[in-house]
């Protein structure tokens, strides 16, 4: 296994528009943010870009703020910054949890949310939360800006709606303050990637769950919502039977899409998706 990347050209633009221009000019160019997905892929020669466009120092892509309760997270925010942000903890506690569980401290201090979502690794944690939380991704490319809901952004294994030359600029998440939300994961013992990760967002009225969003990652090629599980939880009082039914519904929803490997075969992952839904509900209500 090679541990050095192929040769490449390196550019460090000083503005977002310059970065987009560079990327638009070269089909074989790739944006470099924290580099914690791209560089390992390059080292293994799974990725051999001609040019790296280092966007890591663009202030336009940084910062975490709230606007009328909506969280706005610059794409270059690192996992560690997000995990530590009081705004994120207040408005989307599950995202603070998830980013705090990514990799190890070195990865969390360099890896960025934008880079993570753009990479769309199925075993990654943040896509599951951004999807369950109903997040919106703001993109900018050679043809201007647009926004895409997380529901439409993740397409398949390592595949998103990002078009050539487009960058994620920021991620907006409606405030979940007042809603119960949690992310739980079963981590691979060596890589710490999610074998299964589940995020739930529950709107409660007294004891009744009036709306629910459920997403699962790790087990599936992309972060995936479970409409049947959401249906089982909605209108219930989250009693054991309802949560068990939701877990079963989640397992059925993803049944045909579950991936397996030597450590966690398909059957095991499928079963764990149900277990972790139950644990996510427990964690959200705790």
């Amino acid at each position: 296994m090679s541990m050095r990347p192929a040769n490449f050209d390196y550019q460090r633009p000083t503005s977002l528009s310059e970065a987009i221009q560079l990327l638009a000019n070269n089909d074989e160019a790739k944006a470099l943010a924290g580099g914690h997905s791209l560089i390992p892929a390059m080292n293994q020669r799974l990725s051999t870009p001609e040019q790296l466009v280092d966007i890591g120092r663009l202030d336009e892509l940084k910062g975490i703020s709230t606007n009328n309760g909506t969280l706005s997270i610059g794409a270059l925010s690192t996992h560690a910054q997000i995990a530590a942000s009081s705004d994120v903890r207040t408005h989307c506690a599950a995202l603070a949890t998830a980013t705090g569980l990514v990799g190890d401290p070195q990865v969390r201090n360099w890896g960025t949310l934008g880079g993570n979502l753009a990479h769309a690794d199925p075993a990654s944690d943040p896509p599951t939360v951004v999807l369950a939380a109903g997040g919106t991704l703001h993109l900018q490319g050679p043809n201007g800006t647009r926004s895409v809901s997380a529901d439409n952004f993740f397409i398949d294994l390592f595949t998103t709606d990002l078009q050539p030359g487009e960058l994620i600029t920021r991620i907006e998440i409606p405030s979940l303050q007042g809603k119960k939300n949690a992310y739980v994961k079963l981590a691979h013992p060596a890589s710490r990637y999610a074998i299964v990760g589940v995020c739930v967002v529950l709107e409660m009225n007294g004891n009744e769950c009036v709306s629910a969003r459920v997403a699962v990652g790790g087990a599936t090629p992309k972060a995936t919502r479970s409409p049947s599980a959401e249906e089982r939880l909605t209108g219930s009082s989250l009693q054991v039977a309802a949560v068990d039914a939701a877990a079963e519904a989640l397992v059925n929803d993803i049944a045909g899409d579950v991936m397996g490997d030597l450590f966690a075969p398909e059957d095991y992952r499928r079963a764990m998706a149900g277990v972790y839904l139950k644990r996510a509900v427990q964690a959200a209500m705790a």
Binding site: F263, A264, P265, D267, Y268, A271
Partner: peptide, 10 residues
Amino acid sequence: TPDRVVTKLR
């Protein structure tokens, strides 16, 4: 291993 344990317990 976890998957063997789950399978057997089930």
